[in-house]
């Protein structure tokens, strides 16, 4: 498979009155064409900020992308002109957000908003754009799409609005769709519909997807590869099966242990991770998980571990003691 997007050492910080927030701390990974990558982590782990950084959508000030390269389609998105990045956004690289209601203009009809985008990006006539819009809305499973073009966003349900957002994202045949918690606000049965839709679209259109979520279950269902993020670092990366079945990082182990499992006795106590994530203001060097890690040693407090490959290929982990933990020595 051909590489589609490569991120090198991306660092994003926010300069607030309380101090410097180290939101993303040197994230590097790549994604191939047609691949689905899940990015999981809890609130404040930098998963959304890193996605916004890719598209240079970080509000500046207070945010600033400190360093890094984002290679997409032969260009470093962090250095191209403002005009060029605008062409990429919504064109080759589309983004869908958590709250579809706030990303749609409530005062304009849904049809008009998509038609406008098409005419802007693809230079279509009004008629062509309308036809394409109907086609797109049908593709994402909106029944009777033709007659719904003149409806306003509030006339759609939450799930349908998210479909509209996805249709908008698809409008210019993107090679990569970045979806930031697109199903978090939705009910499980509606979430299942959207996940199903994304799977179908990926198979039909061959686009790659970066799916950002806190829900490990959705990642297990949808993604091929996964990044586990914590305090602005990727702490574990690999094929979904490797990460979920041969889990190496103590944080991922803890996260999976926090979830009730269908195959265990419901009476057993959940193995919760004690404490809570570190404050990202003036984050100290050292492993960010050390304070909550049952295996932390002196080294973990002082040196930041880098991602290194585990025994299987394409599975990396940022932990000083992963080998000992895997062997049960630690």
């Amino acid at each position: 498979m051909k590489e589609l997007l490569r991120i090198e050492d991306l660092q994003t910080r926010f300069y607030t009155r309380d101090g410097v927030v180290h939101a993303v701390n040197g994230v590097s990974y790549s994604i191939d064409e047609g691949e689905i990558l899940g990015v999981v982590g809890e609130s404040g782990c930098g998963k959304s900020v890193h996605a916004l950084s890719i598209l240079r959508l970080i509000p500046d000030p207070p945010g600033r992308i400190e360093s890094g390269e984002v290679w997409f389609d032969g260009k470093d998105l962090l250095t191209v002109s403002d005009e060029e990045i605008r062409r990429v956004r919504g064109g080759q690289l589309a983004m869908v957000f958590q709250d579809p209601m706030s990303s749609l203009n409530p005062a304009m009809t849904v049809g008009f908003q998509i038609v406008e985008a098409l005419r802007l990006h693809l230079d279509m006539t009004e008629r062509q754009a309308k036809e394409r819009t109907t086609e797109l809305l049908t593709t994402v499973g909106i029944p009777d799409a033709k007659n719904r073009l003149d409806d306003y966003p509030h006339q759609f349900s939450g799930g349908m609005r998210q479909r509209v957002m996805i249709a908008m994202g698809l409008s210019c045949n993107p090679k990569l769709l970045i979806a930031d918690e697109p199903t978090t606000a939705l009910d499980v049965t509606i979430q299942a519909q959207i996940v199903d839709l994304i799977k179908r679209l990926q198979a039909e259109l061959g686009m790659a997807v970066i799916w950002i979520t806190h829900d490990l279950g959705v990642v297990a269902d949808l993604a091929e590869k996964v990044n586990v993020m914590y305090a602005g670092y990727i702490v574990e990366h690999g094929n979904v099966r490797d990460v979920f079945k041969r889990t190496r990082h103590p944080y991922t182990i803890g996260l999976l242990g926090s979830l009730p499992r269908l195959d265990e006795d419901p009476g057993t106590e959940l193995s919760a991770i004690p404490g809570f994530p570190p404050d990202l203001i003036d984050l100290k060097p050292g492993c960010p998980f050390a304070a909550r890690c049952p295996h932390a040693i002196e080294q973990c407090w002082n040196e930041t571990p880098r991602l290194e490959p585990t025994e299987t290929k394409r599975h990396t982990v940022a932990c000083w003691r992963w080998e000992e933990i895997a062997q049960g020595v630690a």
């Binding site: 829900d215 279950g217 297990a220 269902d221 499992r261």
Partner: peptide
């Protein structure tokens, strides 16, 4: 049945083998 099958399970093996019922439409 539909509700339970819609709950994602954080286990790729189980996820592949289980049968899923996807409800049409909204509440």
């Amino acid at each position: 049945q539909a509700l339970m099958s819609a709950v994602p399970i954080p286990d790729p093996d189980l996820q592949d083998t289980r049968q899923r019922i996807i409800l049409e439409g909204d509440v």
